[in-house]
Amino acid sequence: MKSIKYTGKLSDGQWDKVAYILSRTTRLDLTQHEYRAFVEAVLWVILNRKAWADIPPHFGKPKSIYTRFYRWNENALWHILARRSIHDQELHQMLAQINDRCDFLNRRREFRSQDRIDSRQENSATLANHQNGVIAQQESTPDPSH
């Protein structure tokens, strides 16, 4: 996918499409300016390949933006936006890049979760083997009182 340099401003027409899609799929009050600034902040981070901490101050607090980005990812809102914006190629391409980042984060989260499960299972198996070894050793050691 071609990289797009993002300056931090959706056209009014693009925002209207995003707001329309969100209004049909969520209960968000999209008349609030903060949602447009939030979407623009996410686009700025993803399309410019920047860290969340580098978000320009006029977008808002980086931690708040990342937290909302994460929640929208968990609720598949980015996927919905990309899937339903196919009639505007530029907007669709921008939202598809957000989806790519979301997919990466989701795979990483699944990998880490599986890694923790595997680690717990290994720890349980090691503990069980150790306990079995101690029991086996105790059973094979003659009782000195007999």
Rank of each mutant, 00 (worst) to 15 (best):
Ala19Pro: 14
Ala19Val: 02
Tyr20Gln: 14
Tyr20Asp: 14
Tyr20Gly: 10
Tyr20Met: 11
Ile21His: 09
Leu22Ala: 08
Leu22Glu: 03
Leu22Thr: 11
Ser23Tyr: 01
Arg24Gly: 03
Arg24Tyr: 00
Thr25Pro: 07
Thr26Lys: 10
Thr26Phe: 01
Thr26Gln: 07
Arg27Met: 07
Leu28Cys: 06
Asp29Phe: 00
Asp29Glu: 08
Asp29Val: 13
Asp29Ala: 09
Thr31Pro: 01
Thr31Ile: 00
Gln32Cys: 00
His33Cys: 02
His33Asn: 15
Glu34Val: 15
Glu34Thr: 15
Tyr35Trp: 15
Tyr35Gly: 11
Arg36Leu: 05
Ala37Leu: 13
Phe38Ile: 02
Phe38Asp: 07
Val39His: 06
Val39Pro: 09
Ala41Ser: 10
Ala41Ile: 09
Ala41Trp: 03
Val42Ile: 11
Val42Tyr: 01
Leu43Arg: 09
Trp44Gly: 07
Trp44Lys: 09
Val45Lys: 06
Val45Asn: 05
Val45Met: 10
Ile46Gly: 09
Ile46Thr: 12
Leu47Trp: 02
Asn48Ala: 06
Arg49Met: 10
Lys50Asp: 05
Lys50Glu: 12
Ala51Ser: 12
Ala51Asp: 12
Ala51Gln: 14
Ala53Asn: 03
Ile55Gln: 01
Pro56Met: 05
Pro57Asn: 01
Pro57Glu: 07
Pro57Gln: 09
His58Val: 11
His58Glu: 10
His58Gln: 12
Phe59Leu: 04
Phe59Cys: 02
Gly60Ile: 02
Gly60Phe: 05
Lys61Met: 04
Lys61Trp: 01
Lys63Ser: 08
Ser64Cys: 05
Ser64Arg: 10
Ser64Thr: 14
Ser64Met: 08
Ser64Glu: 08
Tyr66Thr: 03
Tyr66Ala: 01
Arg68Tyr: 01
Phe69Ala: 15
Arg71Gly: 06
Arg71His: 06
Arg71Asp: 07
Arg71Ala: 07
Trp72Cys: 10
Asn73Arg: 15
Glu74Gln: 15
Glu74Lys: 15
Asn75Lys: 14
Ala76Gln: 13
Ala76Trp: 05
Ala76Asp: 15
Leu77Trp: 10
Trp78Asp: 10
His79Gly: 15
His79Val: 02
His79Leu: 07
Ile80Asn: 00
Ile80Phe: 00
Arg83Ser: 04
Arg84Cys: 00
Ser85Ile: 03
Ser85Gly: 09
His87Glu: 12
Asp88Met: 05
Asp88Cys: 05
Gln89Trp: 01
Gln89Glu: 09
Gln89Pro: 08
Gln93Thr: 13
Leu95Asp: 12
Ala96Gly: 04
Ile98Val: 15
Asn99Lys: 06
Asn99Asp: 11
Asn99Arg: 08
Asn99Thr: 09
Asp100Thr: 13
Arg101Pro: 00
Phe104Val: 13
Leu105Pro: 02
Asn106Lys: 12
Arg108Ile: 03
Arg108Asp: 10
Arg108Gln: 14
Arg109Val: 02
Arg109Asp: 08
Arg109Asn: 08
Glu110Tyr: 04
Glu110Ala: 14
Glu110Arg: 15
Glu110Asn: 13
Glu110Lys: 15
Phe111Gln: 11
Arg112Trp: 01
Arg112Tyr: 11
Asp115Trp: 07
Arg116His: 11
Ile117Gly: 01
Asp118Cys: 03
Ser119Asn: 11
Arg120Asn: 07
Arg120Trp: 06
Arg120Met: 04
Gln121Ser: 08
Glu122Thr: 13
Glu122Ile: 13
Asn123Ile: 00
Ser124Phe: 04
Ser124His: 05
Ala125Leu: 13
Leu127Ala: 13
Ala128Trp: 00
Asn129Glu: 12
His130Lys: 15
Gln131Asp: 06
